[in-house]
């Protein structure tokens, strides 16, 4: 573990606000980058980043230093993002953007797309799935994590990750079929 992190964690546990602020400043860019996959709304995004560090502070006593602090925070980030998706699914009245609108882009054109355009499309595509399916697809195939890493990040068992990924893949395929999109054409 990074000795600077260790020192600031010790300081934070003793109530040193400046030490925790330093910890936040060092890790917030990474957390923000991870959470940008969960929401593209800037206000919500900032709020979620804040929530991660507030939760991390209250759980700091449980951090044993066995894994880097960054990995430990990544787990909290995933939990916060996942909770946000679940709550949003409950609140959402009309989740559907017409499929035809965003599936006009041929698969072979993806690499020529602008990053913002691709991110927006990815977000809207996954937005049509349930939070659990969306999470496993994002971690396994977008962030390219292994089954083991996905299990560590989500707190699920490896078997659960495999089963969930299989289900999510099926749903994704169905989603494309319903839209009448032939990938690779």
């Amino acid at each position: 573990m990074d000795p600077i992190d260790t020192e600031d964690i010790r300081g934070s546990l003793k109530g040193d606000g400046a030490a925790y602020a330093r910890l936040v400043k060092r890790h917030q860019a990474k957390v923000a980058s991870q959470l940008w996959r969960f929401t593209r709304d800037k206000a919500h995004h900032e709020e979620l980043v804040q929530d991660v560090f507030v939760e991390a502070f209250f759980s700091l006593k449980t951090y044993r230093g066995e894994a880097p602090f960054e990995h430990w925070v990544a787990k909290i980030t995933t939990a916060v993002g996942y909770r946000y998706w679940k709550n949003r699914t409950k609140e959402r009245q009309d989740p559907s953007v017409p499929l035809e609108e965003w599936l006009q882009i041929p698969a072979d054109r993806v690499e020529a797309m602008e990053p913002t355009e691709a991110a927006d499309l990815l977000h809207r595509l996954l937005d049509r799935l349930q939070a659990r399916d969306r999470l496993v697809l994002m971690l396994r195939y977008v962030e390219d994590l292994t089954v083991e890493e996905t299990a560590a990040r989500t707190g699920w068992t490896q078997t659960m990750v495999k089963v969930q990924a299989w289900r999510a893949r099926k749903k994704l395929k169905r989603l494309f079929q319903e839209a009448g999109l032939e990938i690779g054409q």
């Binding site: 917030q28 980043v49 804040q50 499309l121 195939y141």
Partner: peptide, 25 residues
Amino acid sequence: MKELEFLKKLGTVAGREEVPQLDVS
């Protein structure tokens, strides 16, 4: 599975996007 390849490609391109800079400390 072609859908997954599409998703991965999309993820790769999307990963190049600049994330909003913020300071929440």
